[in-house]
């Protein structure tokens, strides 16, 4: 007689064990994780969610002073404030997606060791939180954009703006892909935690955030094609401010690379989640 078992627990087999239906069943948990992290991070702070705005504003001011006024790096004829802010807001979103998911296993070892739920709920909820943070900062960016447009800055919004959701998706899955890849590897190699910290900073300077792509000599541009974030940031800036060097080829290539990184991350993650309790 065939019996109806709801769960069968067997040794790990196969490469890909991601159960998307199960992840969907736990959507309430994802929502609650989002809420928890959002609420918890600003409880017992005086300014509360205002910090979401203060932080990019502050970075923008610092960049404007150092790179704009002191180093005098050109900004494609745009007001430096506006130029840096576009880069910072999008980079912040990507880098926090990456760094906040990079410690998934180690930071949650306690609860992962006690109870089962789809482990991907944790990094997915992190991405959603960052998306919300981005939304807040994006509104700030739009306000500043509006202000400078009123003052007559040479800004023109291009039709590429329609690509914004795709750009956000790409930054999200790129950050998630690298984050969960690192989090899987850190269960064995703790070194990577250090690497993530300063690697993120190096990566930022390898991305046209504090300088425009147009400043890069033509013969070196191919190097930037290898950095998927370069195309994304440059496109984002082109979409909203109307300046930048973009090409569909490079953007498509960066999207393909993002997907590849994401797939590797998911595979590593699904391998690790089954056994990491024995190695962590």
């Amino acid at each position: 007689m065939q019996e109806q078992w709801t769960t069968t627990i067997r040794p790990v087999s196969g490469w890909l064990n991601i159960n998307l239906a199960e992840l969907w069943r736990y959507r309430d948990l994802i929502a609650l994780f989002v809420r928890r992290d959002f609420v918890a991070s600003y409880k017992q702070t005086i300014l509360g969610p205002l910090w979401f705005l203060i932080q990019p504003l502050f970075s923008t001011v610092v960049f404007t002073v150092i790179f704009g006024n002191i180093a005098k790096i050109p900004t494609d004829g745009l007001p430096p404030m506006l130029f840096y802010m576009a880069g910072i807001v999008s980079w912040n979103y990507f880098s926090s997606c990456m760094t906040n998911t990079a410690n998934t296993f180690v930071a949650n070892a306690g609860i992962f060791g006690k109870v089962y739920f789809p482990r991907l709920t944790v990094p997915v909820s992190v991405i959603i939180i960052n998306l919300a943070t981005f939304a807040i900062q994006f509104v700030l960016f739009l306000c500043i954009l509006f202000y400078f447009t009123l003052k007559g800055a040479p800004v023109h919004i291009s039709p590429w703006i329609l690509l914004t959701p795709l750009l956000l998706l790409q930054m999200g899955i790129l950050g998630l892909g690298i984050g969960i890849m690192v989090s899987s590897l850190t269960t064995k190699y703790r070194d990577l935690t250090f690497l993530v910290g300063f690697g993120t900073q190096l990566w930022m300077y390898a991305t046209p955030i504090v300088y425009p792509m147009s400043q890069i000599p033509e013969k070196w541009r191919w190097l930037f094609a290898l950095n998927p974030m370069a195309a994304v940031v440059e496109t984002f800036r082109y979409a909203f401010l109307g300046v930048g060097v973009i090409s569909t080829d490079v953007l498509a290539f960066s999207f393909g690379m993002t997907l590849l990184i994401f797939c590797i991350g998911v595979i590593l993650f699904s391998r690790t989640e089954k056994t990491f309790m024995d190695t962590v």
Partner: peptide, 15 residues
């Protein structure tokens, strides 16, 4: 049984 870790051999069926 609570699926926190995997067995090396054998299986557990749960209803």
């Amino acid at each position: 049984i609570s699926r926190v870790t995997m067995p090396t051999r054998g299986e557990v069926k749960i209803k």
